[in-house]
């Protein structure tokens, strides 16, 4: 497959996408992973991302939009650098998931699907993330943090703040 000229992705990601489009029996199978990996790099699925992925997979942009709007992890607007996803589904709820969510709202000063003014954190209430036996659990980007309390949550948030250059 010919590589895409003027790709909006980094060379590494572009090369990964070149390969991804070739491994499946049908090229289109690369669509969902590609969207997710593109979001990882760009921060969200922007219009140029849609256009390039459509081009890479010989799809209409509409096809790409139909698919991307189906999956709840994919977003078309930017989120914070660290997207805090608090599970409030049944197992987490029973062990304080909502308390944790409210705590995050107050600590970060933002609501569901909002981003802090400095762009560092965004907050999202999410459905079950598959950490029920270690509830309540939170995912920050792809990292799991489990068996949390509001105090532990503060430490988690601090650990991300600490990653930032002073």
């Amino acid at each position: 497959m010919a590589t895409i000229p003027n790709s909006i992705f980094t060379p590494t990601t572009a090369a990964r996408f070149d390969k991804l489009a070739t491994i499946y029996p049908v090229k289109r199978s690369a669509l969902v992973p590609m969207l997710l990996y593109a979001q990882d790099e760009i921060g969200y699925v922007s219009d140029p991302v849609v256009a390039e992925i459509a081009q890479r997979l010989d799809l209409l942009e509409l096809d790409v939009r139909n698919v991307l709007s189906y999956y709840s992890m994919l977003r078309t607007v930017p989120a914070g650098k660290y997207n805090v996803q608090v599970c409030t589904n049944i197992s987490c709820m029973l062990r304080g998931g909502f308390e944790l969510l409210d705590h995050c709202k107050h600590t970060l000063g933002i609501g569901h699907k909002e981003t802090t003014p400095d762009g560092l954190f965004s907050l999202e209430e999410v459905e079950c993330i598959g950490a029920c036996c270690w509830a309540p659990a939170v995912q920050v980007n792809y990292d799991f943090h489990d068996d949390l309390t509001p105090e532990k949550m503060d430490a988690v948030l601090d650990s991300y703040r600490a990653r930032e250059p002073k």
Binding site: N89, I90, S91, E127, C128, G130, A131, C132, C133, W134
Partner: peptide, 11 residues
Amino acid sequence: DESEPGTCKDH
């Protein structure tokens, strides 16, 4: 695609 709330075994 383990997603049933209450389930984390495949994890």
